[in-house]
Design a binder for these strands. Structure first.
Length: 289
DNA sequence: AGACAAACCTGTCTGC
DNA sequence: TGCAGACAGGTTTGTC
């Protein structure tokens, strides 16, 4: 479900959790991605009695930093939302959503009674909840191979140009490669290629310098637009407050097969194709090459 | 290197 | 109303 703009929206809406202390840790015991169980005991060790110091994002991963006033906390809770994962901050008296797998009960200051819970729910269990050592994020296999994060690292045309030399795969698959760019998923790959007027199946190695520049700009543009609208909710996505994003109304081509291309002078009908088993949308006139 | 399929798991929508 | 089948925003793994 969630790509960079959705994960960043969750990160921002988790701000009220910063400064709260973990009083209890609960897990469902069910395994998540690749049959990996949530490391309950280690999670307790790393979080109980500690305070949420910050929430960071790396590509589609969230890092919830924990520390103790006396003992500097070396741990962060690593979360990936997979397809159907939700991270929500809810009143502790509210019932837990179906398919909740992790709940951290939180309280302000010295309070002994939790007021809110940070809850991870995920019906399809394609997500990840794990622990990483702060400062050694790259030691975690999920983070070891991650490429450039467009929001922090300044994605440039030069980077796309360099990374795409010799790559015979289609440019859409190249954009989806998290080892090149961390954060682009299936929706925004189609969106960025439409903005940059590039055909999704074009071999990545054929990217010219000017077109690489246009594509880098396009990724920035579609991400900024999605962030303004709080992310794209086609089915499952909600932010930490449980609110849907509005960006589905503003998509150019994704899920718009048969509708006219939004470029006023074009009007050609948007086409859906399947690339590596995944829906891909483009305008056959604007994106000829 | 990369194309391709299948796998993980549940919910929702479509068509008969 | 029921039921089978297709499909879903992600990632990994195995085969060719």
């Amino acid at each position: 479900m969630p790509e960079l703009p959705e994960v960043e929206t969750v990160r921002r809406t988790l701000a009220p959790a910063v400064g709260l202390r973990v009083l209890e840790v609960w897990t469902s015991g069910l395994p998540l991605r690749l049959n990996h169980p949530v490391p309950t005991a280690a999670l307790r060790d790393a979080t109980l009695g500690r305070t949420i110091e910050a929430v960071r994002r790396w590509g589609k991963y969230l890092l919830i930093d924990l520390c103790d006033r006396l003992v500097p906390g070396p741990a962060s809770m690593l979360v990936h939302l997979g397809m159907s994962g939700r991270l929500r901050l809810m009143d502790a008296s509210q019932p837990r959503p179906a398919h909740t797998h992790v709940a951290l009960a939180l309280a302000a200051g010295r309070a002994r009674t939790p007021t809110v819970e940070l809850r991870y729910s995920d019906p399809r269990r394609f997500g990840v909840v794990d622990l990483v050592v702060r400062g050694q994020e790259r030691a975690h296999p999920a983070l070891a191979g991650l490429g450039v994060d467009p929001l922090h690292d300044g994605l440039t045309g030069e980077l796309l140009y360099t990374a795409s030399r010799g790559v015979r795969r289609g440019i859409k698959l190249f954009l989806l490669d998290q080892g090149v760019l961390a954060g682009v998923g299936n929706i925004y790959a189609s969106e960025a290629l439409w903005v940059a007027r590039i055909r999704p199946g074009m071999q990545a190695r054929l990217l010219t310098r000017p077109r690489a520049e246009a594509l880098a700009q396009a990724v920035h543009e579609v991400f900024a637009r999605a962030l303004e609208h709080g992310g794209t909710s086609l089915r499952d996505f909600v932010n930490a407050d449980g609110l849907e994003g509005e960006n589905a109304h503003y998509l150019h081509v994704y899920d718009r097969a048969g509708q006219p291309c939004p470029r006023a002078e074009c009007g050609q009908l948007i086409r859906r194709t399947v690339v590596q088993g995944r829906s891909t949308f483009h305008c056959p006139r604007c994106q000829r090459r």
